[in-house]
Amino acid sequence: MSRVKPALTSWLGGLALLALSVAAPLAGAEEACNKPVYLTFDTGTMSVAPLVAQVLDRQHVRVTFFAAAERTIEGGDSLDNHWRDWWRARADAGDEFASHTYDHVYWRGDEKSVEPRFRVRPSAGALADREFTWTAAQYCANIAQSEQRLLDLTGKKPLPLFRAPGGKISNKLLAAARKCGYAHVGWSAAGFLGDELPSDKYPNDKLLAQALRDIRPGDILLAHLGIRSRQDPWAPAVLEPLITGLKERGFCFRTMREHPDYQGWFAARADAAAAPGATAR
C-alpha cells in the first residue's frame, strides 16, 4: 500500500501537468491576440438567426446582440416566446445583449425645448410608422423595455448599452440616454457589413472582399439576424467566410463587454448600482 499511494499521487500530478501544458498555449493564444474586432448583430426578421447561431458555435465566436421587438418572418416579433429557447441558448454560449429600443424607434430630430424632447418614429409594435414627440424619460423607457425583455428571455443581465436604430442620434439624445444609464454603440465605417444593401448592386462576394480588405483592429462590426429587403441573403454566403478570413489574418473576436472604450462606463454603472440607496434600473 505504501508503494501504491506515491505512484497514484505521481500519476495524478502528471495528469494535472499535462492538462496545464495543453491549456497554457490556448490561454496564451487568447491573451496574445492584439487584433480584436467586435461583431454585433441587430435583430431584424430573425430569418437567419438559427444559421447565425450555428456558425458562431462552430467557429467559437462570441458576439453582442442589440435587440428590438421587430416583426419576424413568422409574424410575431424577435422578442416573443417563440424565440425564447434561441435567446437562452445564446446566453448559455456566452454572448452578450443590449437594447436596440423595444419598438425600434428612429430618432427624427430634437425639439427646441428646455427639457430634452425628441421627434421619433417607431418602426415596430403598435406605434409603428407614426411620428411622436417623446420626452427623454419616454425614450429611456423604450430602451429599458427591451433590456428587461432580454433579461426575461436570457436570464442574463444585458449590458448598460443601446444602439439607436439606423444609428440616428444627436448629442442631446446621447446625453439623455447616458443620464438614465445607457451609453450608445455605433459601428465602424469598415464594420458596416452591408447586409441591408440591395444585393444587385452589392453582391455578397463584393461585400466579403471589401470587409476582409478594410476591417482594422478595434472595429465594431454590424450585421442583422435577417433583412427583409435583400434578395440574396448575406449571412448564408458571407458570415462564416468572413470569420475564418479574419481569423487567418490574425484577428480575434470579442464582445462589447470587453471593448476598452466602455470599461470606464461599466465601472461607473457598477459603482452607481452598489451605492447606498441605489435602485435597480
Results as ranks from 00 to 15, higher is better:
residue 143 I to G: 03
residue 251 F to N: 00
residue 226 G to P: 00
residue 248 E to F: 05
residue 250 G to P: 01
residue 1 M to Q: 13
residue 177 A to K: 03
residue 148 Q to D: 10
residue 270 A to E: 15
residue 139 Y to P: 02
residue 178 R to D: 06
residue 52 V to L: 13
residue 243 I to S: 01
residue 18 L to C: 13
residue 253 F to W: 01
residue 106 Y to P: 05
residue 247 K to I: 11
residue 18 L to R: 15
residue 167 G to S: 06
residue 278 A to F: 13
residue 169 I to S: 09
residue 173 L to C: 11
residue 98 A to W: 08
residue 250 G to E: 14
residue 170 S to P: 00
residue 220 I to W: 04
residue 51 L to T: 02
residue 118 F to L: 03
residue 95 D to Y: 09
residue 85 D to K: 11
residue 106 Y to L: 12
residue 140 C to D: 00
residue 61 V to S: 04
residue 133 T to I: 11
residue 136 A to D: 06
residue 198 P to S: 01
residue 57 D to P: 01
residue 55 V to D: 02
residue 192 F to M: 13
residue 119 R to E: 05
residue 237 A to R: 10
residue 231 Q to E: 14
residue 228 R to L: 11
residue 224 H to I: 10
residue 275 A to Y: 04
residue 27 A to K: 08
residue 79 L to D: 07
residue 260 P to V: 09
residue 251 F to H: 00
residue 118 F to R: 00
residue 170 S to D: 01
residue 65 F to R: 03
residue 259 H to W: 05
residue 32 A to R: 14
residue 149 R to F: 11
residue 45 T to K: 02
residue 137 A to E: 13
residue 238 V to T: 09
residue 206 K to W: 13
residue 226 G to A: 08
residue 201 K to H: 13
residue 170 S to M: 09
residue 116 P to G: 05
residue 212 L to Y: 02
residue 234 W to N: 02
residue 225 L to I: 08
residue 19 A to H: 12
residue 265 W to T: 11
residue 245 G to H: 03
residue 180 C to K: 07
residue 64 T to A: 04
residue 204 N to K: 09
residue 252 C to R: 07
residue 135 T to S: 15
residue 213 R to K: 14
residue 134 W to I: 03
residue 176 A to L: 14
residue 217 P to R: 00
residue 74 E to T: 14
residue 232 D to C: 06
residue 123 S to E: 10
residue 120 V to K: 05
residue 174 L to R: 09
residue 150 L to E: 02
residue 97 F to C: 06
residue 162 F to T: 02
residue 83 W to K: 11
residue 168 K to R: 15
